[in-house]
C-alpha cells in the first residue's frame, strides 16, 4: 500500500477540520439538552464581598466594576424575561459594583431604578434604592443628579414628601444644578403629592436623563398624569352638565354641543376621552396612555 501524496493528505486534513467541528457542535447541542434537565443550582453570588473583590482585583478594580455593572444589567434584563421576576441578587451585584468603583454614577442612578420600580418591572425595593443613592451621594458629593434621584425616590415611591423636599433642596445647593431644584423643593414642601407637582417631578426626571428608555418611562408617566388631570377637568364639567340638564353627558360631544368646551378633548396619544355610563370620564378604548396614579393622588379631590 502506498502512502498518499503530501498535498492530498493536507487537503484531506483541511476537509476533516470543519467536519470535526460540526461533530463537536452537534455533541455540544446534546450536552446542553442533557444538562438542562439537571436541576438548576440556586442563584448565588459566589463572591459577595465588595471589599474582598476590590483587593483581589490587583488594581484593576474599575475594570472589574464595569464587568459587575454589565452583569447587573444582564441579570436585570434576564429577570425581566424570566417569569419568576425574582431580583434577589440585584442588591448584591449593585453593592459590589459601587464598592469596586464608587464613582460609577450610572450604577447608582440606574441601579436605583431597577430596585425601586414595582414588580414586574423592578425589585419593588425603594428602601434599598434610597440606601444605594445615599451611598452614591456620600462618595460623589459634587453630583447633584443623585440628590435629585433621591428626592424622586422619596416623592414617587415612598410618598415621603418631607424627605423628598429636603433631597431636592440638597440638590439645589450644587452650583451646577438647575434652578428648578429649589422650586421643586418648595413646591413639594407646600403641596405634597398633587398632580401638577408630580408632572413637574417627572418632567425634571425626563430632562435629567439622556437614556432613551428612562426618558420613555418618564414620558409615559407624564402622559398618564396629564390624562388624569384632563379626566378630572372633564368630570367637573360633567358635574355642571348634570346640574344644568338633569342627566349625565353620554360623551364629550354633549359637552361640546352644550358649549362647555370648544372641541373634542383628546388624551396625549390623540384618542378622544370617553364618558362611561356612570358619567365619569375615562380613556378611549384605543388609547395607548398608561395611567398609574399613586395612592395619594387617587384620593385627591
Amino acid at each position: 500500500m502506498t502512502a498518499a501524496p503530501p498535498v492530498r493528505r493536507a487537503w484531506g486534513l483541511a476537509a476533516a477540520v470543519p467536519v470535526l467541528f460540526a461533530a463537536i457542535a452537534m455533541l455540544q447541542v446534546r450536552i446542553d439538552a442533557e444538562t438542562r434537565s439537571i436541576a438548576r443550582q440556586p442563584e448565588k453570588l459566589v463572591l459577595s464581598s465588595g471589599p474582598m473583590l476590590k483587593k483581589m482585583s490587583l488594581g484593576y478594580d474599575s475594570l472589574l466594576a464595569d464587568i459587575y455593572w454589565t452583569r447587573a444589567v444582564q441579570y436585570y434584563g434576564g429577570k425581566l424575561q424570566d417569569l419568576s421576576r425574582d431580583f434577589r441578587l440585584l442588591p448584591g451585584l449593585l453593592d459590589i459594583t459601587t464598592t469596586l468603583d464608587p464613582h460609577l454614577i450610572v450604577a447608582y442612578r440606574f441601579g436605583a431604578i431597577f430596585l425601586s420600580e414595582p414588580p414586574p418591572v423592578g425589585a419593588g425595593r425603594p428602601d434599598l434604592a434610597t440606601e444605594l443613592v445615599k451611598r452614591g451621594m456620600a462618595a460623589n458629593p459634587d453630583d447633584w443628579h443623585l440628590a435629585a434621584d433621591l428626592g424622586f425616590l422619596y416623592y414617587w415611591h415612598l410618598k415621603d414628601y418631607a424627605n423628598a423636599s429636603e433631597a431636592y433642596l440638597e440638590a439645589s445647593k450644587n452650583p451646577k444644578a438647575p434652578g428648578m431644584m429649589k422650586i421643586m423643593a418648595a413646591r413639594i414642601a407646600q403641596k405634597g403629592g398633587d398632580l401638577d407637582t408630580s408632572i413637574m417631578i417627572w418632567a425634571q426626571y425626563f430632562k435629567s436623563s439622556k437614556d432613551p428608555q428612562v426618558r420613555k418611562t418618564a414620558q409615559d408617566h407624564i402622559e398618564g398624569l396629564q390624562a388624569v388631570k384632563d379626566e378630572r377637568a372633564i368630570d367637573a364639567l360633567s358635574e355642571k352638565y348634570r346640574s344644568r340638564f338633569g342627566r349625565d353627558p353620554a360623551s364629550t360631544k354633549d359637552l361640546r354641543e352644550a358649549g362647555m368646551i370648544p372641541g373634542i378633548p383628546v388624551d396625549p396619544s390623540g384618542v378622544p376621552y370617553a364618558i362611561g355610563p356612570d358619567g365619569k370620564s375615562r380613556l378611549g378604548p384605543h388609547s395607548t396612555v398608561r395611567v398609574e396614579v399613586p395612592p395619594k393622588l387617587s384620593n385627591e379631590k
Binding site: 474599575s62 475594570l63 464595569d66 455593572w69 454589565t70 444589567v73 444582564q74 450610572v106 440606574f110 437614556d211
Partner: peptide, 14 residues
C-alpha cells in the same frame, strides 16, 4: 449592546 451608560468608561478601563 450589553450594558448601560459605560461605553466610554469601558474603553478607558479596558
Amino acid at each position: 449592546q450589553i450594558s448601560i451608560g459605560i461605553e466610554r468608561l469601558v474603553i478607558v478601563n479596558l
